[in-house]
Amino acid sequence: MNKQAQVIVVTSGKGGVGKTTSSAALSTGLALRKHKTVVIDFDVGLRNLDLIMGCERRVVYDFINVINKEATLNQTLIKDKRVEDLFILPASQTRDKDALTKEGVCTIIDELKERFDYIVCDSPAGIESGALMAMYYADHAVIVTNPEVSSVRDSDRILGILASRSRRAELGLDPIKEHLLLTRYSPERVKRGEMLSVKDVEDILSIPLLGVIPESKAVLRASNEGTPVILDERSDAGKAYKDAVARFLGEQIPHRFMQSKNILERLFGAEA
């Protein structure tokens, strides 16, 4: 199976736009499609991915312990209980970001590449060392963006940094493949002209669109339960993430959830 393991960073610059939600959904989606997948929390000091994945009570060791050789990867990786082929590598809650070194991260990524098809890196917000580490070894970057000015500007900043400070940029290899994931989208508000549209954001960032995730109550519900929203198959957000995963794997799927719902859909459709 393991043709050539791919490293995917989920990043944004701006905080709170849905990176962790998306990392959890995309990694779960890849594993549902039978790809061996590990999702790494790079948000050292502020770990959250374990909560969203619902494995917080099973965390014993963390990423930094592995870097410092205080634990092995096998002891540290948490196997998901719902989905075969899915593992979580939690962040440290107590150390700070400087505990992540390029060499340390490199050793672990290389080791993970032996065992997994996809390595999904949930980046912290900002453009400091934690975010730089999360993107450094990436082959793909999922740029999580909200249809809102500061988020779009930060996404553009991140694209500039990916193009200049990643390993691929430094070594002059093929550039990182960029994917736009527009989240918290409200077609109704776009229709009223209150919110930037998909096309507006595409025009500005000019990178290929991986998916549009609608603003959805299901996301909060899923995080309350510690279940990645992609497993909520009735929700629009869950379906939209599933489509995004399929597109990532090369399938041509039309975009949904970009139009405001008509009255029938609102009355009889599944809850957002």
Partner: peptide
Amino acid sequence: ASVAKERL
């Protein structure tokens, strides 16, 4: 929204 787009 179009003001936002122009500024961006």
